[in-house]
Design a protein around this nucleic acid. Sequence first.
DNA 1: GCCTAAAGGTTGCATTTTGCAACTACATTG
DNA 2: CAATGTAGTTGCAAAATGCAACCTTTAGGC
Lengths: 148, 148
Amino acid sequence: MTEHSVDSNRTCPVGRSLDVMGDRWSLLIVRDAFDGVRRFGDFQRGLGVARNILADRLRKLVDADVLVSQPAADGSAYQEYVLTRRGESLFPVVVALRQWGEKHLFDRGEKYSRLIDTDTGKPVPVMTPRTAGGSPLPPAQTRVKKVV
Amino acid sequence: MTEHSVDSNRTCPVGRSLDVMGDRWSLLIVRDAFDGVRRFGDFQRGLGVARNILADRLRKLVDADVLVSQPAADGSAYQEYVLTRRGESLFPVVVALRQWGEKHLFDRGEKYSRLIDTDTGKPVPVMTPRTAGGSPLPPAQTRVKKVV
DNA sequence: GCCTAAAGGTTGCATTTTGCAACTACATTG
DNA sequence: CAATGTAGTTGCAAAATGCAACCTTTAGGC
């Protein structure tokens, strides 16, 4: 996770986010954490990631205040990794990736796991950027204003 | 960009999205493409990525139908890389990463580039998953339904 | 308490990916 | 037609990753 050296990547929030989360495993760890996974071994089995890499990523995510490691709630002496507020606020990122994958990366008829609103039992609606007025905001109607 | 081997990563749209986009550069390339960057050299200078890596990523993004390479519109003999519809629909992903970074990755007073609604000149509102009724949907009110 | 197995890592080594610099090929400019 | 710019490719060194073995602490059976 080398830092992006060019200056525009330092002042761009997208670049900074990817400095923290932009590797093959970190966002999958966070996804599983949203699904309630908390223990090292469960992350490891669920992801199929090498144990040393998982240990490294968990450490970095804790350092980045995305996860916190705390004594397990179930009374056992082991500890567990839980999303912080900062980690929880990655929810839109994970949902956006999910919805993009759902739309573009599966063949017709191919099954995939779905994200459900537990209050209604229905799939979560597609999320999109919106104007202040609430209407969908296409990319062409935006631009990035560079820092002063 | 090795494929994630464990089965749950193949049926999870998040996992599949990250198989395609989950490296340090692909989403930055797409971000710059949203900003209007089209040419190899402009991506290279803007990102500071090694040229061989950029060539490899552009090739993979074209293979994944995120970008299309076509003759340059400006009459020059070179070609340019433009977002496909599939690529354009990564907009929510890029915006979500941006908004997470804005909120959590900058110190008070530190400047960062902002995404502006060109119709109003105001920053794009924070995007969040919503229920069918339109109210914000917290992670705890969702669950992933595994495939049958 | 004692033994065994599982959990949660760490370490060493082979493989893969990345970064850097040099090189090539073609196009454009003067 | 020489010089410069664009768009790569190639070779090699450095870093990240994957894999297996090892270690230490905890949990469970007796």
